[in-house]
């Protein structure tokens, strides 16, 4: 067959044309996306990667709510300069319990995937509430309201954990039962700090 003939046939038959367009535009996804979704080491937790505890989970949701990933990435790329600056590069299995993942695509501020433990809780707290109280030339906005609200104001932590369990996060019933107690008395900023402090390279030896 000849391409010009095919073209004539296609442009005179709209059903065929629609099918052809769908087919051609699907090829990229069929080659690139579909096998990756089914690739085991991209969807199973890497060694040492644990599901978030209740406090970190709330903190992560706050990280999403406040749009932190707009300015901070969470992926140390496998480049010499990044590994030297931030630490071990990020691996796919580390994001197995991230729904959705927060890799980000822009760094107005630094990458945060290895930030845990670099600064103290106190510093993180001061910096979140009023960045310029500790970094005079910082351009990060302050989030003072995080100190005013309770971390789990609507008492939804158990529902959140159950939803994630349905998606395959291995929370036990006892963990879910204990979750509200872990959050009792914490402000939003405490949960967010706990989440930030949990962003470290997974400790492979700690896996049971």
């Amino acid at each position: 067959m000849n391409a010009v003939d095919l073209h004539r046939k296609l442009e005179r038959n709209s059903g065929l044309l629609i099918f052809g367009i769908l087919l051609v535009s699907a090829i990229g996804g069929l080659v690139q996306v579909l096998p990756s979704v089914l690739q085991d080491d991209l969807v199973t937790p890497g060694p040492g990667t644990q599901p978030y505890g209740p406090v970190e989970l709330i903190g992560r949701d706050l990280y999403i709510r406040e749009g932190c990933s707009t300015c901070h990435s969470q992926q140390v790329r496998p480049l010499l300069a990044e590994v030297k600056r931030y630490g071990p590069y990020s691996k796919a299995g580390e994001s197995a319990y991230d729904r959705p993942f927060l890799w980000g695509s822009k760094r107005t501020g630094p990458d945060l995937h290895r930030i845990g433990g670099k600064y103290t809780d106190l510093w993180q707290r001061m910096h979140l509430l009023d960045p310029r109280s500790v970094v005079p030339d910082s351009i990060m906005p302050g989030y003072p309201w995080l100190a005013e609200r309770a971390a789990d104001a609507d008492g939804s932590i158990q529902a959140r954990m159950r939803a994630l369990r349905r998606l395959g996060h291995p929370y036990t019933e006892a963990e879910i039962e204990a979750a509200p107690a872990a959050l009792a008395g914490l402000a939003e900023v405490d949960a967010l700090v706990a989440y930030l402090q949990s962003l470290r390279p997974p400790n492979a030896e700690a896996t049971p």
């Binding site: 069929l30 080659v31 096998p35 089914l38 690739q39 085991d40 080491d41 991209l42 796919a92």
Partner: peptide, 11 residues
Amino acid sequence: AELPSTFWSGW
């Protein structure tokens, strides 16, 4: 990273 199976590799 390994691909899930030879089927997908062929695909």
